[in-house]
Each structure stands twice: as C-alpha cells, then as structure tokens.
C-alpha cells in the first residue's frame, strides 16, 4: 500500500532502434525513499527516468513501451502527461534548457500557470518553492545571470511548484562545479527529510550522493543489476560495482582494502566523521582479535 511507485516488467525501445534501451525492470519504491541510480553512460538510466514521469510513453510516441509503471496510483499509460507531472517532478541535466522564462519567479510560476490556477494560488506556490530551495533573493534575476548551481536550484523549484510527491533528477550535478553540486544535493536531501518527498536521482558523484541514499540501483545494459542498501556494495558475494563502471568513493575503496587485509568493521561508513570514529575505535581491536 505504501509503495508510491510500482514498475512491472518494464521494457522500452526508441523508434530508432530495435534493441530495447531498458528491459525486464520490476521495482517497487516506498514513499520517502532516497534512491541513487548509477551505471555507465548509455546504460538506460535516462530512459528509466523518463518512464517515471510519463515522458515515456507520452512524449516519445515513436517508441514501444511494454509493461506498466504506476506512480501514486496512476498508470502512466492511461493518464495524460500533465496529470503525471503533478505526481512526479523531473529535473534534467542541462539547466539552460529547462529554464524558459526571463526571470526566476516567472519560471517557477510556469507550471502552476499551465494548470490554470488562480493567481493567489500561483503566488503561494511560487513563494513556497522559492523558500524550499532558498533562492528568494534571486527572484528577479534572469537565468543566464545565475551560476550553474543556482540555475539547477531554480529548475528544482519550478518543478516543486507543481507539488509532486516524487522528484526524479537525471544527473542534476553533471554540469556543475563541486560547490554547486554540494548545494544542489543538500537541497535535495532537505526536501526528502523535511517534505518527505521521494527522491530518485541519477548521480555519478557517489561520494556525495551515497551519504543520504537509502537505496542504490545499478543499471547495466538496460537492466537492473544491483538493488539494495549501499552498504551491501562491498560484500563478497556481490559482483563488484567496478564491473558495471560504478566508481566507488575513495573512502569505500579504503575500507574495502582494509577488509581485504583481514580487518573487519561493524559497519561501512559513507561519511567522514563516522568513518573516523569507526577507524579510531575498531581498527586496533579488529587486528587484535584476528591475530
């Protein structure tokens, strides 16, 4: 019942190719999860994202979709795109191509305006979205006057104005510098923690993204090859993530190497303070028990 996304036997091929871009995907996503998707470029991550917000099948009409995607009770094939987009907000990689108005404020208003909401309601939603991503001071600015990180925050805000329960982000930090990426990921984490929005994010910077992730999906050749808690990544019975082109954060690589040498730890840390605490309290004792 509390599965907000249900995917059954999903397959999609674009009109240009017979080879399916994604196939055999079965997946349930619970409300409030923070899901990171990783994998090589071309593995089907972007296609998968477009299935979640209804761009597939509604925008990519030349393609062939099999199976079903249900988001918050709506079967994406049976409802028009504008209904689905009010459940699933989508943020794309390139900020310049998703900001279409000449000021931040009007960009955020774009969605609610399309819905034909009364002006007072639009105003409320715009203010709320500005607050949520902390960009109220930018409201009068034009998109090309902003840094990449700011642009991407505007893109998130303009999607939030449609009040979605799920936020899908397709490599939102790929074009950003580290400071911008940290800003954007912090905002996203906040939305998940405070607004209980379900987050599904494609991200290469695992050292940042995995700190907040409740679940990691790895895709390869159009299928899901890993679906579990990030901690399980380094367990022996699992194919190493490197095989699928997923770059392990150097912190995790360090712990893996230490474990290879006979040390054991009570848990695998994805953030620095925890890692330091574990090392200081467990490193010596682990060795003494193993000796």
């Amino acid at each position: 019942m509390d599965n907000i996304v249900q995917i059954r036997d999903l397959e999609f091929s674009y009109g240009t190719s017979r080879q399916p871009a994604i196939r055999e995907i079965d997946l349930d996503i619970k409300k409030g999860e923070y899901i990171v998707i990783a994998g090589l470029s071309g593995c089907g991550k972007s296609t998968f994202c477009r299935c979640l917000n209804g761009l597939i099948p509604h925008f990519y009409r030349a393609g062939v979709m099999k199976g079903s995607v249900t988001v918050d009770g709506l079967d994406t094939r049976e409802h028009p795109l504008y209904e689905i987009t009010q459940k699933v907000g989508m943020v794309f990689q390139d900020p310049e191509s998703q900001l279409m108005a000449l000021t931040v404020e009007r960009d955020i208003a774009f969605g609610p305006e399309n819905l034909g909401l009364p002006r007072e309601e639009i105003r409320i939603r715009v203010e709320e979205a500005l607050e949520l991503v902390k960009i109220a001071h930018l409201r009068e600015r034009a998109p090309h006057e902003l840094s990449g990180g700011e642009q991407q925050r505007v893109a998130i805000a303009s999607v939030l104005a449609l009040q979605p329960k799920i936020l899908v982000l397709d490599e939102p930090t790929a074009n950003l510098d580290p400071a911008g990426a940290v800003d954007v990921l912090n905002i996203i984490e906040n939305l998940q923690v405070q607004k209980k929005i379900t987050v599904i994010i494609v991200e290469h910077r695992l050292e940042l993204a995995l700190q907040s992730a409740t679940r990691l999906l790895i895709m390869h050749d159009g299928t899901l090859v890993f679906d579990d808690k990030p901690e399980r990544l380094i367990e022996k019975d699992i194919t190493p993530a490197e095989v699928y082109g997923v770059q392990m954060p150097s912190l995790i690589q360090l712990f893996t190497q230490l474990m290879d040498e006979g040390h054991s730890f009570s848990q695998i840390p994805f953030n620095i303070p925890l890692a330091a605490a574990i090392i200081l309290s467990e490193l010596g004792s682990a060795r003494s028990t193993s000796e």
């Binding site: 994998g39 470029s41 990689q93 790929a174 074009n175 290469h204 997923v246 770059q247």
Partner: peptide
Amino acid sequence: TMGQDAIQK
C-alpha cells in the same frame, strides 16, 4: 572528466 562515468574517466 566533467560528466563522465568511471570507465570513461
């Protein structure tokens, strides 16, 4: 390396 996956990097 901007926007590249691990193998490309």
